Simulated assay, not measured.
Amino acid sequence: MPLDSAAFVALINAHQALIQRVCRLYCQGADDRQDLYQEIVLQLWRAYPHYEPRAKVSTWLYRVALNVAISDLRQRTRKPSAARFGDTMPDLALPLDAGPDADDLAQLYRAIERLSEVEKAFVLLYLEERTYEEIADILGITQNNVRVKMHRVQEKLRQLLTHPA
């Protein structure tokens, strides 16, 4: 696929919320979310010429975004003071709702933060109402493996929510 910057910008604009949700799930601070957002967009730009239009664009976006987020998280845990990109991008993270369920939502986010990188990916895709087939494609595993892992993640979240540390 030839590099078409206008088409790429339109693609990012159309799927900005998807990227923001990945950033929110893998980063707590606004600065880290900004940095991760920039890194995901950069990696999408680098991968864009190799995108196969026969694959669903959301599957490709998720795969790149999750791989970048997991790699970034692993790098941050090894080098917490590593230099990052500049502060030019606005905070695009989705804010927590201040409605009547805000406490429950905050408790859920605290529980999710305690999950592993891969477990967080399952939660994100589940909350995005992706089918097991789509999750399998995005994560590169079988649908049966998705079912097993999804059940384990759900059980772990139940435990974390009933017995918060």
Rank of each mutant, 00 (worst) to 15 (best):
50 H>M: 09
33 R>Y: 00
19 I>K: 08
38 Q>F: 09
40 I>V: 14
15 H>T: 04
39 E>M: 09
33 R>T: 05
31 D>N: 10
9 V>F: 09
40 I>W: 00
18 L>T: 15
32 D>S: 11
26 Y>L: 02
25 L>Q: 14
39 E>R: 14
18 L>R: 09
35 D>T: 07
26 Y>G: 02
16 Q>F: 06
18 L>A: 02
17 A>T: 15
30 A>R: 03
14 A>E: 03
43 Q>V: 12
44 L>P: 03
53 P>N: 03
32 D>L: 00
23 C>Y: 01
35 D>W: 02
14 A>T: 13
17 A>P: 06
49 P>T: 04
35 D>A: 00
21 R>K: 15
42 L>S: 10
21 R>D: 14
42 L>A: 14
54 R>G: 03
9 V>R: 13
37 Y>P: 07
9 V>E: 12
27 C>T: 00
35 D>P: 00
16 Q>S: 14
52 E>L: 07
11 L>V: 08
49 P>I: 01
22 V>M: 05
20 Q>G: 12
48 Y>S: 13
46 R>H: 13
41 V>S: 07
13 N>D: 15
15 H>R: 11
54 R>F: 07
44 L>C: 05
42 L>K: 10
49 P>A: 06
30 A>H: 04
16 Q>P: 05
14 A>Y: 04
27 C>Y: 00
21 R>V: 12
34 Q>M: 15
35 D>F: 00
26 Y>V: 02
28 Q>R: 11
19 I>P: 07
46 R>G: 01
43 Q>L: 10
45 W>F: 12
16 Q>H: 13
9 V>Q: 13
34 Q>R: 15
45 W>C: 08
33 R>P: 00
19 I>T: 08
48 Y>Q: 03
24 R>T: 11
26 Y>W: 05
19 I>L: 13
39 E>C: 07
23 C>A: 15
38 Q>N: 11
54 R>M: 09
17 A>W: 11
39 E>K: 12
48 Y>E: 07
40 I>E: 08
9 V>Y: 10
50 H>D: 12
25 L>H: 14
11 L>N: 05
50 H>E: 07
30 A>S: 12
53 P>D: 07
18 L>P: 04
19 I>N: 03
28 Q>L: 10
45 W>S: 11
46 R>D: 03
16 Q>M: 12
48 Y>W: 12
19 I>E: 01
21 R>A: 14
51 Y>E: 02
45 W>T: 10
52 E>K: 05
20 Q>K: 13
31 D>I: 04
42 L>E: 10
22 V>G: 04
44 L>Q: 08
49 P>Y: 04
19 I>F: 10
37 Y>A: 09
17 A>R: 15
12 I>D: 01
47 A>Y: 09
38 Q>M: 08
53 P>W: 04
9 V>H: 10
54 R>Y: 08
38 Q>I: 09
44 L>K: 03
33 R>W: 00
51 Y>T: 02
10 A>N: 13
44 L>N: 02
33 R>F: 03
51 Y>C: 00
35 D>C: 00
21 R>T: 12
32 D>H: 06
48 Y>V: 01
46 R>E: 06
13 N>G: 14
37 Y>Q: 11
50 H>T: 10
25 L>S: 15
47 A>L: 06
52 E>T: 09
11 L>R: 14
37 Y>I: 01
20 Q>V: 13
